[in-house]
Design a protein around this nucleic acid. Sequence first.
DNA 1: TTGTACGCGTTATCAG
DNA 2: CTGATAACGCGTACAA
Lengths: 344, 344
Amino acid sequence: MEKIPTIKEIAKRLKVSPSTVSRALHGHPSIGLVTTMRVNKVASELNYERNQTAVFFKQRKTLTIGVIVPDFSDAFFSSALSGIEDYASKRNYNVFIGQSLENPDKEKRILETMKTHRLDGIIISISKNTTNYEVFEQLKKYNIPVVFFDRIPGMEDIHYSVCNLQSGMLQAIDCLIEKGHRSIGLINGPSQLAASKERLDAYKQGLDKYQIAVNTDLIVSSDLSSAQNTYAMRRLLSLADKPTAIITFNDYVARDAIKLLKNYNLAPNHDISFVSFANSPIWSFMDSAPMASIEQFPQKQGIKAAEILFKIIDDRISEASLTPVFHHAVFDSSMVSHRGRTNV
Amino acid sequence: MEKIPTIKEIAKRLKVSPSTVSRALHGHPSIGLVTTMRVNKVASELNYERNQTAVFFKQRKTLTIGVIVPDFSDAFFSSALSGIEDYASKRNYNVFIGQSLENPDKEKRILETMKTHRLDGIIISISKNTTNYEVFEQLKKYNIPVVFFDRIPGMEDIHYSVCNLQSGMLQAIDCLIEKGHRSIGLINGPSQLAASKERLDAYKQGLDKYQIAVNTDLIVSSDLSSAQNTYAMRRLLSLADKPTAIITFNDYVARDAIKLLKNYNLAPNHDISFVSFANSPIWSFMDSAPMASIEQFPQKQGIKAAEILFKIIDDRISEASLTPVFHHAVFDSSMVSHRGRTNV
DNA sequence: TTGTACGCGTTATCAG
DNA sequence: CTGATAACGCGTACAA
């Protein structure tokens, strides 16, 4: 085990002071050319490499951001992570990760670890069970900026990057109405999710625009398990007046619904048209895709969150801002048609 | 901006020495109960939290491992990451990430960053274009253990965790032979990939077991693009003696091949049976899955790599091992049948 | 039981 | 242009 060369070591060999070596290594203009060259020579001979932990310690900056999501094996989040990593690495920043697995305790532990590590900033999509926001207040005191994305807490004064689901829902309804549908069903998610409320509100608003009364029979919910997805679909199919189109909470719900539809020997997008949310890559592998899916741009959301975070970090350097500004990025979801792709 | 409390601060308030505070906070037995309690009280009043960067610097341990893969938005790698994160977090370790995007230069840069950060260990699945292994040698000098997984370099004396593809291939062939197939095609990947050679060798070995001569017409390759996948399949379909079964490099190749087959109005697994590699989740969304897919257990590979890494880290503490031991985990791939799931 | 002194590697400040 | 010194926050021999 060879020992790792330090600035001191170089200084000793050259019989100069450590500070001279440090400055030479940084190309400081006040150091003479000869000295600089001699230092660089010895440094490369010894394979010197600076000890980043010492620099972090001294500078109180870690050049590291943290990313916390519920689960990296979920395509939505891993795609966001991929975008964040790419952005951060271009800024020469490093990325620390943690996954909450939807467990608020684990989430809290991760946040605390990141705090003690003095990370320069955190990007987080919170667990769906998180209700205690105290940690985030503490983070503020430690001056560690937090940017939320996709899943944001019900707090005032936060930075976030989210996707507005309303726009996609309204587009979907416009499109369905244009195709002559008047009876549009909704398979929504669990009511406690903010995302469910958002979809429902936009659904009602969309129908209202065309003076279509909301028929509560056409609105069913699921906890997003396959069993309940199927059950919800069955309820819609059992109606005397079946909907001619159905909007589902997400692509997985749509998949289960379409599967059931086929068991009834009905053709998706022919007998009943489908529009779902997420636009996940699964449809490119499927024979029966919904007519359209509403894209939520996970990677874009992640990158936007990173942009916000770095803006905060940059601003902090230039001035201690007296009036805090909270950055919000809300971009529109957008309906993506799958019609050319399906073979129904 | 409140300033962050330190041990010194606590010491000053209590008029004791910093070392007393430090020991008290660690529950050192030599500190009196009263003192300990007073220290803890003030610490929690001030919301004291120790500065991990200082500890890292002092202890020359970062309690952090790095994970590098080509792309986190790939389900295979994100699933591995998920497993690694979970394992590491149980050991109170943190995870640093980087993605090479198949770019050897970026990969090198990431590795160097991790080196200067003095990470305690690195788990990596190398980019498919990596040919220069010099960095890994340097890492050895810095005493940073590296564990490779899935994609491993052609080096001696390394730690790794991989999946043996031979077992799956042999199972597949056993299974196909048993069902009466004698003419089995292979759509392989690019020849420069070790994984292609491995599949080909096992394929030959499998046929050999049943005294079936290898027919080179039945072996085609693709660079794994959709275009070439389709082209490769077309070549097999244009043979006078078409194969009755086809083994494909991975699920994406199978998807493209099956798609083409349908254009020929032939039924997958009826006219031609398919077995592929990867067992990716896409099949659960598809109407026409291959008969079977060979599981490669990304998460398991990741966790195993983490186990190896932590074993090395643990061993290092207990003793400076004189004879280096290299840990290899090779577990068998395994054929997973999809027959119950397909509706062909 | 507690305090003193030092070191970890680097850089900023000030003095020459 | 360069050197000496202090400081960052913490842990720990050693001394008291």
